[in-house]
Amino acid sequence: MGISLSNIDKSYKKQIAVRNITFDVNPGELFGLIGPDGAGKTTIFRILATLLLPDNGKATVAGLDIIKDYKAIRNSVGYMPGRFSLYQDLTVEENLNFFATIFGTTIAENYDLIKDIYEQIAPFKDRRAGKLSGGMKQKLALSCALIHKPKVLFLDEPTTGVDPVSRKEFWEMLKRLQKRGITILVSTPYMDEAALCDRIALIQEGEILDIDTPQAIVDKFPKDIYNVKADNMYKLIQTLQRYEHTYSVFPFGEFVHYTDKRVTFKTEELQHYLESSGLNAITIAPTHADIEDAFMELAKK
């Protein structure tokens, strides 16, 4: 019931969309494709959903070949495309009913699967889908994708443009679905969501940078990272960028993540440099890399 891709290539005219994509998603796994817009995430989803033919390579979904068995795949996967793809002029209930009907089932038959998602939007069941807020649209789209009890779920950027609260709720729902044995492939441009997946693939410009558990990916980060802070953020970044020993400097929340070129690095030296550049209230403390650090480091190469 897993997913498997090997050496998938796809180009549109002359533009390469994805190149040499190979990864496996184990049955029952929550697997994340993490990368910015234009990285090729949507292309991968469309190939797996049998909507696009790859130029090269092989792929299977739940043991079915994406080219030969496309009809069988279409019956057994749930697919939620990147943009909101429901009928805006139909009500919440009509949308759900429609998708149940075309999959040859009824809402009642599979209600237990969507119950805890649908209950949140049920008070608005007579409202037109176009009039829902972003978070509610997401929940409705997920309900529609689940209505036929798919074994595999494809979610293409389900949380893009959604506020942090709704995003958190959405991920809690995914975790519950995973417990019911559904294999989930999800993509997101928000790197902080990577930690919620079992395993992730970091992807940029059509190529996979790394595949592993989120923890393993940050553990692989080759340098010591320091949280640096001062009274003037802009000046701090500029001063650090001019520093001869700087390897990388990136703002991270209230801090700047700093890595040094040298193997042995003394914080006092940096402290001194920053003070002499006219910065005050300086703090320098070691910290852990997060997914974004890892992504930026991998993307550099």
Binding site: A49, R74, N75, Y79, P81, F84, I102
Partner: peptide, 13 residues
């Protein structure tokens, strides 16, 4: 245009 065709294609219809 709406993208609903994608979902219809990936359905038993």
């Amino acid at each position: 245009e709406l993208g609903t065709m994608e979902i219809l294609l990936v359905s038993p219809l």
